[in-house]
Design a protein around this nucleic acid. Structure first.
Lengths: 174, 174
DNA sequence: ATGGGTGACTTCCCTTTCGGAAGCGACGTA
DNA sequence: TACGTCGCTTCCGAAAGGGAAGTCACCCAT
């Protein structure tokens, strides 16, 4: 199983991971959310090698998560910005960061503090709530129901490696 | 910069990524949230090779995200369950999944549907809200303030590669 | 006009890690 | 005794990663 294949899975987690499921990619995105836009700064602040940074930025642009814009003509210089698609990764970064602070950090000295700038103005630790009733939700509160396509894909995953292949090409329910 | 070093960063995102920032690891966790507990099922449903599954499960156990329990004595068999630390990754998985569905899926046929089982009972698409005022938050609503340690770490990241090294050993502000 | 600096990458080379196939060992069942 | 199941481990070739250096286009100061 290769990662190029996994992007074709029906699973939205798998598809998301095919794009952003890479450490360097996520560090680049972290910097993007901090407001970083220029290649040099991504490279410096992530401490990734130039190769990695160029590669990850190019992939993010290709996938539509970031866009490359000229910010100056002479000499030609570029900057990378989050697209709307990229900006909507914010909840992922926030929840990941909060998890890291909760379980791996010294609570007395958090590395970052989030402030609800446009709202109540207070330091905040955002919480996931139900879109329908606005109650906080945790793992046991939520039941997962598989859609038809994904249920089929999972059912096809028996011990025979070809089973998955037979589902993907056709893709329709008779 | 190697990944074993990045776990020592002050950044909570980096520390979190040092543990879960790997595609296979995240697929394993996806299955764990689906209720999968046994090695064989992780292997079958993620389509990862046995080596990868064994390795990732062992790492997750070592980090305290999952725990290995005997579920049967004769023959000895084990199962892997999420610890509280692991269960708190739920918001990360949910937001990642919703992002994947929003930007990569066919909205008419979502692979999974989340139902607010213990609450309103309706299909839900959880939303991040401010812990203080309960208003939904998106990227531009939130300002990020760096803590002292992390601000120092970032400031030390100049072009000279040794700069970071000089901060880490001391670690205190005079 | 020349030397240095900046920004955004590429190239090269070597080491580490990954992924797939196959094998193993303890046990249970027929 | 043979066969199947489960949970891994071993082996090896392929791919990715890291570091250092180089490139290219331009600007600026001397």
């Amino acid at each position: 199983m290769r990662w190029s294949d996994i992007g074709h899975s029906a699973c939205s987690v798998a598809r998301a991971l095919a794009i952003v499921g890479d450490r360097w990619t996520l560090l680049v995105l972290r910097e993007a959310f901090f407001g970083i836009r220029r290649y040099e700064d991504f490279q410096r602040l992530t401490q990734a090698s130039p190769r990695i940074v160029a590669d990850r930025l190019a992939k993010l642009v290709a996938e539509g998560v970031m866009e490359k814009q000229r910010y100056q003509e002479r000499p030609v210089r570029y900057e990378y910005r989050l697209t709307p698609m990229g900006r909507e990764l914010h909840p992922v970064m926030v929840t990941l960061s909060l998890w890291g602070q909760r379980w791996m950090g010294d609570p007395a000295r958090p590395p970052v503090r989030l402030v609800h700038r446009t709202g109540c103005g207070r330091p905040t630790m955002p919480v996931l709530v139900c879109s329908e009733c606005s109650e906080p939700v945790t793992a046991p509160d939520i039941a997962v129901e598989f859609g038809d396509a994904y249920a089929e894909e999972r059912a096809a995953l028996t011990r025979t490696p070809d089973a998955l292949g037979r589902v993907t090409p056709g893709g329709s329910e008779p």
